[in-house]
Design a protein around this nucleic acid. Structure first.
Lengths: 336, 336
DNA sequence: CGTTAGCACTCTCTTGACGAGGTTGCTAAA
DNA sequence: TTTAGCAACCTCGTCAAGAGAGTGCTAACG
């Protein structure tokens, strides 16, 4: 266990490094913080902290830099103390965003933009899963005798659509009949439910091939669209950070980000429910491509279908600000 | 006017520079191309080409590098000769993509991915404007007595939606009545038409405040969504290019790209109709942020509403490949 | 007159040396 | 346990020198 002073030293070092992005030495530390001890003492402490794995030197005779483990204790301390739940974060942001966007997509987009601006990080806002959410209504629109669009409105107001092609001619009347039937049977179910029922073969009416085709397409479409409803902004914010000034450092991150599949699963273990904020630091990330960045994320929404809001930045990010901002975004998106 | 040999020299230099990304000198040029003259002669030619503004030296005693004007003549030559229209580009790509995606959004996404991969550039695919396209059908879905979703299906199958809030209670019956009325009056019109008719006050039935509110929202929604339906992929491709190895060079480009407004207007002057490919090189771009990159773009679609497909890369991009790929994408997206 | 060879010149890039600046670890004293 | 002092270490910037690459110029050649 670290003595109280050594904790203070670690904390001071991390704060300085977050601010200046340069290795911090013992003298600088005593000058910038009222530690009440001499540089020599701090040097001893730094040596202990290094042995404990919280900090390291880029090379002999440079200052120290926090390790992932160092950030981890820093963040844990933050989360357990100063950043108490009761603090209402950025009330202006919440109001402003709520007022500006009447539609979920727009709200997500603006929230993402605000998040990127506030944190100087990349931000990601993923819509609640429409696959696990219930269906409110289903509409079929004929494009021709061989094509139609199926539009699904989810319980929470999200809308997804898909074009269906028929091998045989389908009249408008048949389409209307199918629409009525499907609405009677499917409303209130999720795609997950549908798949289960379909496998079980419970419902007699669904034997009709047209209806079956449409259901298949709906299920597939709902599944696919989960990956596509992510807004991400703030690459330019990342580019401004010194750790990404050589773009080689950014490449792995961008590769992950441009691959929907990876992105979709990057937050699988985000705590469920309107829960606490998850912070993953550097090598704590599941994929090696993300070993150089930290992710602050939490889910939002209620019940079956939850979205994710997250920021990604260098491990030297402002964790306090990021956690605050992500909490605020969670508020904004919660009961829209 | 340049002599035939000097044109060959210019072309050889540009091809080499595109390939190796290093300044090219006279000796290298004679070694890599069968120019049939000595380095000294090439030196004279290079001097002439430099005076004419087609190439420049990064510093005395380096090789030469093409200027924007140099690329311009190179591209004009390409467009007028080797890259004849009749050449069917990448037939496998067209087929593969067409088969894989039943929905416009998915097709755009995949086309964008293929384009980025093929060209090693950033690719942008923008959906046809739903603002200028005609409406096929309009659906209202009640969320509560004070909220509803309006879903607009465009003639070409695109679907956009928006949540509307009412100040006074609106029953399902009222909503249904409004839906019927709106479908009778609006189908076949574009948002542009609507605005005109609304201003003129031509149609008596539209005096109803609920109907009027909905129309307003529809028009606004269609206008806004034009900016949001862009798919862009390939940032990682750009990051791999040596000109963007220091990310400072990428920053202005990313800032433009993350600003929907700018992006929307970046292609305003793209030739209309299923027309030729537009190439804008470096400083030919309207905004100074894009002075370091080239854009190869063309529009696709027919009639009222056209989309745009484009790639953005360093001025040292493979113009031939990019033009081919953009044409192929135009084919893919044309009659979907 | 266009083309070519030769040569001096220029500029960058790399290398090595050197000093300045900053930080550490150690030791001995308070 | 804390502190002051000191030697050692490493990086970074500058500087000089040399290699390498390429140019421009001049004079000769067909």
């Amino acid at each position: 266990m670290l003595s109280e002073r050594r904790q203070r030293v670690l904390r001071a070092l991390i704060e300085d490094y977050i601010q200046y992005a340069l290795p911090v030495g013992s003298r600088t530390l005593t000058e910038r913080h009222r530690l009440g001890v001499s540089p020599a003492t701090v040097r001893n402490d730094l040596s202990v902290l290094e042995d404990a794995g919280f900090i390291q030197q880029p090379h002999t005779s440079a200052g120290r830099v926090p390790t992932d483990a160092g950030y981890r204790t820093f963040v844990d301390e933050l989360l357990s103390s100063g950043l108490a739940e009761e603090e209402r974060p950025h009330p202006s942001m919440v109001e402003e965003l709520r007022a500006s966007a009447s539609e979920l997509d727009a709200l997500m987009e603006r929230t993402s933009a605000a998040l990127a601006r506030l944190t100087d990080c990349l931000s990601i806002v993923m819509a609640p899963s429409v696959f696990s959410g219930r269906i409110r209504q289903l509409t079929l629109v004929s494009l021709s005798n061989y094509q139609a669009i199926v539009i699904v409105v989810a319980e929470d107001g999200q809308v997804v659509n898909r074009t269906i092609s028929f091998t045989d001619e389908v009249t408008c009347d048949e389409l209307a009949a199918a629409q009525n039937l499907l609405n009677r049977v499917l409303v209130g179910q999720s795609a997950r439910d549908m798949r289960r029922n379909l496998d079980a073969g419970t419902i007699e009416a669904l034997r009709d091939p047209l209806v079956q085709l449409i259901i298949d397409e709906v299920i597939e479409c709902l599944g696919e669209s989960d990956g596509n409803r992510a807004h991400s902004l703030g690459i330019s914010s990342l580019l401004r950070q010194p750790e990404f000034s050589n773009s080689k450092a950014l490449l792995p991150v961008m590769e992950v980000l441009e691959d929907d599949q990876v992105l979709l699963h990057a937050f699988d273990d985000t705590v469920e429910g309107d829960g606490p904020v998850m912070v993953r630091i550097g090598h704590e990330n599941p994929t090696s491509e993300l070993a150089g960045v930290s992710i602050v994320a939490c889910s939002y929404g209620r019940g079956d279908s939850e979205g994710v809001v997250a920021v990604i930045g260098p491990t030297r990010m402002n964790y306090e600000g990021a956690i605050r901002a992500v909490r605020a975004a969670q508020c904004v998106l919660h009961d829209e």
